[in-house]
Amino acid sequence: MRTLAKLSTVELKLLTRDPLTLLFSLALPLVSLLVLGGVFGNQPSPEVWQGIGPMSFYVPAYVGLVIAALAIISLPTALAGDRERGVLKRFHASGVAVSAVVGAQVVVTLVMAVVSSVLLVALAALVYDFEWPQSIVGVIGAFVLSGLALAALGVLLGAVLPTARSAQAFGVMAWFVLFILGGAGPPYEVMTSVMQRVADFTPLRHVVLILHEPWLGVSAGWSWAIVVAMLVVGSALGLRLFRWE
């Protein structure tokens, strides 16, 4: 536990010394939000977004997107890079546990997700009208669960992908697919049925749905179970496939 705290602190400090990565993970969702907000405005339309105003729909969705960017791109890139360069081997030889190495990455992801989401919501509040969460506690719960589940998938990617380069390439690609199909892009209702079927398999769609439930008071149905399953399967496989070198 002490090691986890220490390692997490160090990892967060390292991140603040890496302005480019920091900028990417903080600014990209903000820019996307402004672009989509400019396109859609916040006029509710009965055909799409379950009749919810676009920005009320997109602000929680972008919170999900922020978590996904950190968990699917930054986390695996950091983990694979540390393995590639021999940092993990160094930690291993000094008796750092897998749980501490992986745990520190998850802590960094969650902390960054909080910072990034607060920025996002604050910016959105300055520019747009949107509905505020109906249940703050519920949103926090959904946020933490989403963060852990997506981070678990990130750990799995970081365990499987051999280099920082491949992790980043795969992460960015996967993130754009999630972005477009997962509910942070075009409305689900306007997608073709094939796209909808694919969207149902993207982790982000279910993350967005469980964020919407406490935020907007709509039902997320099975998505809660699916996100919990992501967490369980992702961490089990990720820890199993974890390699020090």
Binding site: K6, V10, K13, L14, D18, R85, V87, R90, A93, S94
Partner: peptide, 30 residues
């Protein structure tokens, strides 16, 4: 591992970690 010290031939630290932070981190492991 808690009782041995190890200097490996092929290993590294994160580029941005400071010397004192590395020592502080590694000594906290024991």
């Amino acid at each position: 591992r808690a009782r041995i010290g190890s200097q490996l031939q092929e290993s590294a630290l994160p580029d941005r970690i400071k010397v004192w932070e590395a020592l502080d981190l590694f000594s906290s492991l024991s």
